[in-house]
Design a protein around this nucleic acid. Structure first.
Lengths: 207, 207
DNA sequence: CGCAAAGATGCGGGGCACGCAATTTTCTCG
DNA sequence: CGAGAAAATTGCGTGCCCCGCATCTTTGCG
């Protein structure tokens, strides 16, 4: 049996997604400490004990979708034509992350304004911030490997690929934060290329 | 009464330091989940309940010294002469972090090799990684403010100071990781300037 | 010296993470 | 198809953590 196509695999994936999605939704609605693991499990139609078979903590469940998305960046980078300049490829690869996936389209948000407000509250939770940062470090490994492959550097001995990966992911985080801080004068599709362009230019002082 | 010089203040600071130090030491020795809050409190000569008056979690206690050190970077940056180029000042400011403070000199490590090994195990703990990353984000605010002051940009409206602060702190983290990953061919005093120089040059591919 | 403010402590509760063993579901192969 | 193997789900019990509240002790100040 090929991996990923059996009934088992698809059910597991579905449960995992349901748990993560339920965790996010409930947290955005009520706030993190008004959501018990019991609630999340119930919303996903599964026993409380099963929740911890999939995730080690509430925070991990909430953050898992973000981790999945960050992991795609490395894949996208590998997919870019090799003759493309590195920073062009990196910019394009990171931008793919902001195209809404099918699962978001399928689940339309009832009240976008209220949702955005809840999201901010959620992201202000220290425990979630910490876990969220950890996802970028995990994805960093993948991205560093892809950068190493593209630039002919070594993932084990060279500092370069790690530094580039860390910097790129930091730039996306900084762009996101800026986007949330200011009441969005500009969109991510504009902010992120700007950030990466600045970095590729060596972050010179403005004007 | 001036802040910070009363008996009360100094006792509080001492207790805080003792708790954090005990938490680190015990964790390096035995591993995170073989250390109970009770143990840390006992080692610091204080009741278990008091521990949580100072820190919200074990992780926070362990990480608090690192946070203190990162906070100094912004102060150091402000102390650099204003005519100094930005990236020179940033490099110097971050380097001060690696001069061992008086409390480390006073408490000599019995077995440096074993200590280093324990440190690695400790830093591999997911919960600690997460909390450690959070400290950099907290320090990032301070640093961004200092960068804004030096470059005449706005902490509220401009993206630039945040991007610079985030990138610099990420570089120090990447350098630390590289230092721990490779069995230290080079020291931090060499690695960190290299990282910042690469960034100031726009991270070009190494020929 | 005595009162007010602030910190330390003890107690108790809610909840989370996880090990273990039993049970149900899915897969594989004769 | 059907039986046994493999894997996932579940229930139960445990240890610990974090925090609120009330009380007691220490420090600060006039």
């Amino acid at each position: 049996m090929l991996v990923g196509v059996g009934l088992r695999e698809s059910k597991k994936a579905a449960t995992r997604t349901a748990l993560s999605w339920a965790a996010i939704q409930l947290t955005v609605e009520r706030g993190l400490d008004n959501v018990k693991v019991e609630d999340i499990a119930a919303a996903a139609g599964v026993s409380p004990r099963t929740f911890n078979n999939y995730f080690g903590s509430k925070a991990e469940a909430i953050v898992s979708r973000q981790l999945d998305r960050l992991r795609h960046i490395a894949d996208e980078l590998r997919r870019r034509p090799p003759e493309e300049p590195l920073w062009t490829a990196l910019t394009q690869a990171t931008l793919t992350q902001y195209q809404p996936g099918p699962e978001v389209v399928a689940n339309p948000i009832p009240d976008p304004v209220q949702w955005a407000a809840g999201l901010r509250v959620m992201l202000a939770e220290p425990a979630l911030q910490a876990e969220l940062l950890r996802t970028t470090v995990i994805a960093e490994e993948d991205l560093a490997a892809a950068v190493a492959a593209r630039t002919g550097t070594s993932i084990e001995n060279d500092f370069y690929p790690h530094l580039v990966a860390a910097t790129v992911l930091t730039a996306t985080r900084a762009a996101t934060t800026h986007y949330l801080r200011t009441e969005s004068g500009s969109e991510m599709e504009q902010l992120l290329p700007e950030a990466l362009a600045r970095i590729a230019a060596g972050l010179p002082e403005p004007h």
